[in-house]
Each structure stands twice: as structure tokens, then as C-alpha cells.
Design a protein around this nucleic acid. Structure first.
Lengths: 131, 131
DNA sequence: CATAAGCTTCAACCACGGTTTAAGGTCTGG
DNA sequence: CCAGACCTTAAACCGTGGTTGAAGCTTATG
């Protein structure tokens, strides 16, 4: 798929895709004989994932660390497994952090509900009288 | 409390507090006869709330619009609750995505282990030639 | 009383995450 | 054949969320 098709399918701009590629957040595309990028259709899902993660406050570096790209040069099975396991750990870390964030959100909601709009700073605590 | 005390208690920099004040994210401080800012101790909790919310991907504008100050009119926690619930849904979606990714990584690792490290590519989504 | 620490304002600078613009090359349809 | 759509790179620009620095005033301490 050409960059415009991918961009259209994923709902992002072409400039954004090029930017991601330049930053190593997505794998460099294969190139046709005309120099045009040729992306796999799977990239659409990855781009959506990136948007999701960004919406949750993850930086592009964080996202890049949990994402796996097609390595240009095949590496030994040992290395590949090692790398994949590192990626898996990073994904686990992301899931854990996201789960914690979820809990934090729940707590904030509960706090707001019980305090009846009294104040919004309930979480994180420390509401002593002023010093 | 003077700005340095507040900053110390909340674990933020003084410049950040001045920045927030300038942007209207926090209320302007009272001033002593010397011109020094004098903040209520409650600001500490608010600053922590701001950090939390930022970590969840909220922009300062979003926070400012939802944040509840010492205003006479406590603006509805309704809004905040809706915002947080939407964010919670987004977090859930991300967790699901990440979990699927984790499974894909596991499958790849297994693949490499059983097939002797033939190929090191694949990811982002399905393996397979580009479409 | 001197000196450091802490406060003031204002302006310049920075990283991040892109978008926009310029100057092309390529491909498609009438 | 050629206009317009789509692709290329490189570099300039932008909003957000701050940090850093200069220059000066105040306050606390030996």
C-alpha cells in the first residue's frame, strides 16, 4: 500500500507517517522502483495503536519501545528471541502501567462521586489545613 | 505558604507554578507586602492532581477546564466524571490492544523456538507479505 | 553588616510532536 | 500530450509545556 492509502485507512496524515518513519517509530517502508514507499496493510493497525497510546499520555518513545518492527536484516534466532522477550517485558510493563492508570481513574471518579463536586483534588491526598 | 514551600511540598519547580499561574491553570496567589506570592496549602493537592491528570494524557487546558478551585461556584464534578469515564474506556481499549500484542509476541517467540530461528521478522500485526 | 538564599519579572531557550512549504519526480485520465 | 493527483526530500515553522538566565529586591543567618 502506498503512503496515501495507508494514511487514508488509518485516518492520519502522510506527513505524520513519514515523521514516524524518520523517528524510527515505525519500520522503514519498502520502496518501489519509483522510490515510492510500500507499506504492509498491517501498519494501519499499528498507527491506530499509536494514536490510542498517545491519547493515554504515552510518549512516542514509550510507544516505540513496546512496538515491534520488521527488522531489515534477519538476525539469529537467539538474538531474535532475546529481543522479542525484551519487547514482551516492555509490553507487560505497559499493560501494568495502564492497569494502574485505570485504577487511578476509578479512584478519581469515586472520589468525585462521594465528595459531590466538593473538590477535584482528592487523589494523591494530603489535604491538611494550611500551614 | 511561599512559592518555594509549595513547590517543595508538591514536588514541582517554582517556575512551573509561576507558569501555571500565568496560564490561569491555578488561581493567582495573594501577595504579601513584599510582593511575594502567598499560596494556600491546598494548592499542594491541586498540583499533584495536575501531575496525575497529565500523566493520563490530559492537556493543561483540559485540566484547567475541569479543575475545581476555591471558586465560590464549585463547577460540576459531572463534567470531570464524564471526562474520566471516557478516559477509562480508552485505557481499557489500550490494555486490550497491548494484550493482543503480547500474544502475538509470544506466538513469534514460540515460532522461533520450534522452527529453529528461521525468520526474525513479523509483528505490528500479522506476519505475511505486504498487501 | 555582609552574604547567601529566596523572591520578583521578563525574555530567551528547549524538547516533543507534528504541519507546512518549497522544489521537484511520477503516474493517471481525458 | 499534458493537467492534476500523488509521491519524494529537506528545511522551516508551530503550539504545548515547561526551563534557564539576567537583573534586581527581600529576608534570613553568621
Amino acid at each position: 500500500m502506498k503512503i496515501g492509502e495507508i494514511a487514508n485507512a488509518a485516518g492520519v496524515t502522510t506527513s505524520r507517517i513519514r515523521f514516524y518513519e524518520k523517528r524510527g517509530i515505525i519500520a522503514p517502508a519498502l520502496r518501489g522502483p519509483n522510490g515510492y514507499r510500500d507499506y504492509p496493510a498491517e501498519l494501519v493497525a499499528l498507527l491506530r495503536f499509536i494514536e490510542q497510546a498517545q491519547g493515554l499520555g504515552f510518549t512516542l518513545s514509550e510507544i516505540a519501545s513496546v512496538e515491534i518492527r520488521n527488522d531489515p536484516q534477519p538476525i539469529s534466532g537467539e538474538q531474535a528471541i532475546h529481543m522479542l522477550m525484551a519487547k514482551r517485558d516492555a509490553v507487560d510493563a505497559l499493560i501494568e502501567e495502564a492497569t494502574q492508570r485505570r485504577h487511578m481513574i476509578d479512584a478519581l471518579i469515586e472520589d468525585l462521586r462521594t465528595s459531590g463536586g466538593d473538590r477535584a483534588d482528592g487523589a494523591g491526598g494530603a489535604r491538611g489545613p494550611r500551614t
